[in-house]
Computed example of a mutant assay.
Amino acid sequence: MNLPDFDQLLRLAERQPEALERLRTELINAFINKSQGDTKRRLRGLQFQIDAQRQLHKSPLGACIKISNMMTESFHDMIARLNQPTVETPTTCAKVYQLDIAENEQ
């Protein structure tokens, strides 16, 4: 499914807001359904949070501001994690051979 151009979306918003909402839902679901496993589950959870914020706010602008704040918080969390790497024990093993140099020098 392709995204209509801006003018078509504007006409839908002005004349058929229900159709615009259906299109939004279809496009989101199509995107999420292309995902696999854990990513799909996480995207569904994120979309649930976004939809909840849209329902909680009386105005679209209020919902937009809250969702924007959610994105900003998520971005700051990501930056903090990138700047504070965890120290983990290596999980690979290596076979170590002892070299007896004294025997080789004779």
Rank of each mutant, 00 (worst) to 15 (best):
K40A: 07
Q16S: 07
I28C: 14
L20C: 09
D38F: 04
F48Y: 07
P17M: 04
L43E: 05
K40H: 07
I28P: 13
E18T: 00
Q16I: 00
I28V: 13
R41G: 01
F31S: 08
L46D: 05
I32Y: 01
L27E: 11
K34C: 06
K40L: 03
I50Q: 05
R24A: 15
E21A: 14
A30T: 06
I50G: 04
N29D: 15
L46K: 00
Q49G: 03
D38S: 02
N33P: 06
F48N: 14
D51I: 06
T39H: 02
P17S: 07
T39L: 04
Q36G: 01
L23P: 13
S35P: 01
G45I: 05
R44F: 05
F31N: 10
T25F: 13
T39K: 08
E26A: 13
L27R: 13
T25P: 03
E26G: 12
E18R: 13
G37P: 05
N29V: 07
Q16L: 09
R41M: 09
L27Q: 08
G45Y: 02
S35A: 12
Q49K: 04
Q47L: 01
A30G: 06
A52C: 02
E21Y: 08
R44T: 11
E18I: 10
S35N: 00
L43R: 00
N29I: 06
D38L: 08
Q36E: 14
L43W: 01
F31M: 08
E26L: 14
I28N: 14
E18F: 12
Q16H: 14
A30M: 05
Q47F: 10
E26K: 10
D51P: 10
F48M: 05
F48L: 11
T39N: 08
I50Y: 00
E18P: 01
L27D: 06
A19F: 11
Q16C: 10
Q49I: 01
I28R: 15
R24Q: 12
A30L: 10
G37Y: 09
F48V: 01
Q36S: 13
Q16E: 15
